[in-house]
Design a protein around this nucleic acid. Sequence first.
RNA 1: GCGCCCAUCGUCUAUCGGUUAGGACACCAGGUUUUCAUCCUGGUAAGCGGGGUUCGAUUCCCCGUGGGCGCGCCA
Length: 433
Amino acid sequence: MSVRVRFAPSPTGQVHIGNIRAAIFNWLFARHNGGQFLLRIEDTDRERSTPEAVQTILRAMEWLGITFDETPLYQSTQHDQHRQAAEKLLASGHAYKEDKGGTGQGDCILFRMPGTDIGFHDEIKGDLNKKAEDMKDFVIVRSNGTPVFHLANVVDDITQGITHIIRGDDHVENTFRHVALYKALGAPVPRYAHLPMIVNAQGKPYSKRDGAAYVGQFRDMGYSADALFNYLTLLGWSPGEDREKMTREEIIAAFTLDRVKSGPAQMDIRKLTHMNGLYLAELPVAVFAEEVRRYLAKLDWGQNLEESLFMSVCQLMQSRTPLYPQCETWKYFFVDPIEYDEKAVQKTLAKEGIKPALEALRHHLAECDFSEPGIQQAIRKAEAALGSGEGKLNQPLRVAVTGVAIGAGIYEILAIMGRTRSLARLETSINRL
RNA sequence: GCGCCCAUCGUCUAUCGGUUAGGACACCAGGUUUUCAUCCUGGUAAGCGGGGUUCGAUUCCCCGUGGGCGCGCCA
C-alpha cells in the first residue's frame, strides 16, 4: 500500500517551528517512500480560524519547499462526514448521548471506550499500551452539534486514506482514544510515529518567549529556507553518520523513522546561524545579491546603489555574512561622509605620528594603479619610508577610509571603492586629526 | 494525585554488549603575509544514581531521581 501522510494545522495564527518540523518529517517520509503528502486545514474553530492564517501556512510551506500532492482539504467542508460517523457510532452502540451539564444546551455525544486495554506500535517509541481503567469515555460531538477534534481528526484521516500519522508526542495519549475510534468505525488503524518536542533551555515546549518561534520570524531574521529546513531536520533525527549539512535529496534518501530520537531536543539558534552562513556562502552571487537587495531596500541609504559597486561588495562580503541583515554594516561602501566608530578612532588614529603616516600613505597610494597588489605595495612603501613594521598601517588606513575597525581585507576594500573615493576619505580623515 | 513517555559533552547528536565513547555548534589556543569573518590545526568538555543479567555494560532488565506530556463540550 502506498504511503499517505498529512500535515493538519489549525489556521489560527503564525506557523510554529514545532509544527513545521512535523510537516517536514511527514514530507520527508512521503518523499522517501514515494508516497503522498497531503495538507488538511483544520478550520473548524470558527472563532479563531482566519483566511489570513491559511495564507500564512501556505506561504511558509512554499518558502520551505514543502510541496503537497492533492488539493488541500478544509475540515469545515467535512461536517456531514463527521455527523454521519457520529450517527454510525450511536447506532452501533459505540457512542451515547448524555447531558454532561455545564453548557445548559442539552445532550452531547460521548464515545464509549471499549473496556479493554488498548495498545499500538509507535514507529519511534515502540509498543505503547494503556489499561482499560485508565481511559474514560470522551465527548465527540458537542451539545451544539459540532464535532470535537478527536472525531473530526480521525474521520478526516480515514476519508483522506492516511496510512501513517506522524505528529508531536504531545498526542500520544490521544492516540489510544483514536485507535479505539478507528476500530469502532471499522476502519484500519494507521501506523503512528510520535515526534519528540522541541524545547527551550528549561525543557519546556519552545515558545515565542524563547526567541524566534515562527517560520516568518526566521525568514525576517535572514535565515535561508534551505538552512532552516536542514537544521530542523537535525532536531530529533540524524542520518547516522557524521553528516549535518545535506542537500534535500540526501536527506530524503537517508530519512527513516527508526532513526528519529525519542527524547526532546533543544533549539540552538547559534548552530542554525552557523549553518545559515554555510548555505549563504555557497549561493550563486546573483542569488545572494538579490536577497541582500530585499533587506537593503528597507534602509534609507539602501536603494539605487551603483550596480557594479554593489555586486563587487556582495562578492567580497558573501562568505563572511551568516545572516542577511548584516548587510546593514556595508554602508561605508556606498555613503559619504563615512561614520567614524569612535572606539576604533581612539585605538588606531588618535596616536602620535599617525598623521604623517597617513600623509605618506596618501602619497604612495596616489601613485599606485589601485589594483590590489598595487595598493598593498604602496602601503608597504609608506611603511618602509616611515621605518614602521610591515602591516602596521593596515588598521589605521582601514579606519581612515571606512570608519570602522572590522571588515574584509583592506586591499580589496580600497580596490573596490576606487581611487577617487579612497583618497578623498583619506584626505578627510587626515584633516580631522 | 493517576497514567504514559524520556535520560551520552553546555547544546544537537553517533554508538544497535567489547571504541582511547566519534562528529557538529559554542568556547579556548595557534595558523591562514598582524582587523572581523570564513577556512585549517589543536584543546577543554559526556554516559543521572543504585541494583541486577553477562566474561564484559553507555547499550538489556528493575528500582530510584530528574524532566516532559496527558487526564476539557481546546486542538
